[in-house]
Design a protein around this nucleic acid. Sequence first.
DNA 1: CCATTCATGTAATCGGTTACATGATTCT
DNA 2: AGAATCATGTAACCGATTACATGAATGG
Lengths: 195, 195
Amino acid sequence: MDIVSAPTLSLLGHALLGLLAHGPKSGYDLAQGLRDPVGLFWHAGHSQIYPELARLEAAGLVRHTVVPQADRPDKKVHELTPEGAAALRAWLAAPTDVPKVRDELVLKAFCVWLADPPAAARLLRDHARAHEERLAGYERRLADFAREAGDGLHRPASPWFGAHAVLRRGIGYEREYRDWCVWLADALEAAERPS
Amino acid sequence: MDIVSAPTLSLLGHALLGLLAHGPKSGYDLAQGLRDPVGLFWHAGHSQIYPELARLEAAGLVRHTVVPQADRPDKKVHELTPEGAAALRAWLAAPTDVPKVRDELVLKAFCVWLADPPAAARLLRDHARAHEERLAGYERRLADFAREAGDGLHRPASPWFGAHAVLRRGIGYEREYRDWCVWLADALEAAERPS
DNA sequence: CCATTCATGTAATCGGTTACATGATTCT
DNA sequence: AGAATCATGTAACCGATTACATGAATGG
């Protein structure tokens, strides 16, 4: 074997391998899977996906077959090779950096002392509503999962387990974000009308 | 006035304006302010900051004076112009997109059904500890702030208020992240040793 | 002696977004 | 008639990271 210098696969590459581990998919399918808000904590457009798939194939981690279709364009269906599955497992076992967050709204919160408090509170209530909606969507999907997957949701070797874990994170994240928006909006308004 | 086509300032540019609103600073000071984990929800290296400061100055939003120093290199101290302060306020009043998150650990969680459960649980406990430490650090800083800032912490027009809001978000975020890591590690281990 | 802090810059590279490009079918 | 879905690609650009580059003073 010539594992002389593994060209250190990008995170997007691993994301694609992870989706393909559920079964063969076209580039289009992968783009759907990484589309907001389905890919809660990863996302990419098709213009990034197609070149990356070509790179994965060149590295021997993925192979494709062309599936001709009547009534719609032919598609290239990609699947993991054994090397691809091994690369995915190796990545899973490696340590992970804690993510560096960039969040424009929190940056604005840092500057909120310069803003008009009622206007800022209004913008924050809009965000609270947006996060509330996402939260409700994730909770609905978790309920759907529970019906479809049964005990697969709690068995670590089931693909449902991974989706469940991500959904849980989404639910916790959106709830916390919503609560913070409400707290800050309340604080801004409380100071506006003193008793 | 010739506000024909404002070249749409980058988010980093606004971050720098926001820091300079607290008072004049050198590029080096700004880099410290945007250094992990001081800039909890924004960060940048000096190689990004120096060119951006030049752009802000070219746009008339910032000006600098050179301060000669004995015993250490001279520095360029930057301060907001009235136009810079106005640009900052305009940005604050504009609507904000909800941030798109990319988080490698959550991506791994999606694939965790392919991993060795005890090994994955161990990695998650490491992350839980890292978030626990950040949480403790933020809580300590909030306590320090409360002593230093007094009621400034709750007055929306005080610069302390913005820092307080960001810290609160950091605390909620890290607490939620830690809890999720612990939940997932527990779930992986619970399935390993069935009663 | 070596690492760190202060202090400022440039260059190469990489990852991601937006726009360009094409084209059939199905739904409103 | 126009929009949306399926399907695949390329090119230009922008933001961010990493590495290159310099140099004095301080602390272990």
